[in-house]
């Protein structure tokens, strides 16, 4: 939302907090055509943020997919996002993992680094420390595969930048609650 709208007497509700939080929403959907467009369209249509979004089928027989969205906003806005998502007909459940007791999140990244000589060994040394795997190598480049929380990937990418970072491809996060119960 632009600054003007934020100043509007119609949207600056009394009692709304200034606080911005980042939440991970786990959305279980019927795997039917258009369902992703409905979810993404909701975010763009109502001016909500998407920081990361992943989607894949998770139960083939039942035809279920899981969409994991990372979004940010005031807590009231995030509550509103969950309710708006619940209105979409082919959505089964919306779980705000950030409100759950504990959850784990992982992201996979492929990081291409170019370099020779000293910087090459430096890259390999750091990769080992981060437990990144080499999945492609030439005499002047590596591609590392790294899985972890987004922060860990950010850190690794920053370390690679001065060494010879070429480019990065990331999946966005998948997340799940800890413990024996379903989300």
């Amino acid at each position: 939302m632009n600054a003007q709208a934020a100043l509007s007497p119609y949207s600056s509700s009394a009692g709304k907090t200034e606080r911005r939080e980042t939440h991970v929403l786990s959305v279980l959907v019927d795997n039917e055509p258009g369902v992703l467009a409905r979810v993404v369209g909701l975010f763009s249509g109502r001016g909500y943020n998407i920081e990361s979004l992943t989607v894949a089928e998770v139960a083939h027989l039942q035809g279920l997919s899981r969409i994991t969205v990372v979004t940010s906003g005031a807590p009231e806005t995030i509550e509103q996002i969950s309710h708006q998502l619940e209105r979409i007909v082919p959505i089964h459940t919306v779980t705000d993992l950030s409100l759950a007791d504990a959850f784990v999140q992982r992201e996979l990244a492929m990081i291409k680094v170019r370099g020779k000589g000293e910087s090459r060994t430096e890259a390999l040394r750091l990769a080992e420390a981060f437990r990144a795997r080499v999945i492609d190598a030439t005499t002047e480049s590596f591609i590392f595969e790294l899985t972890g929380a987004p922060k860990k990937i950010d850190d690794f990418v920053e370390l690679m930048r001065p060494i010879g970072l070429v480019e990065v491809s990331r999946t966005g996060i998948a997340a799940i609650t800890r413990g024996p119960l379903e989300m």
């Binding site: 119609y10 509700s13 009394a14 509103q80 209105r87």
Partner: peptide, 24 residues
């Protein structure tokens, strides 16, 4: 004007659509 809307009241909201609650 929302920040001056019924400032002193308790509010009960009955609605079939959960997304209407606390929206504005």
């Amino acid at each position: 004007r929302l920040d001056a809307f019924s400032p002193g009241s308790k509010k009960i909201h009955i609605d079939i659509d959960p997304s209407s609650i606390n929206k504005t």
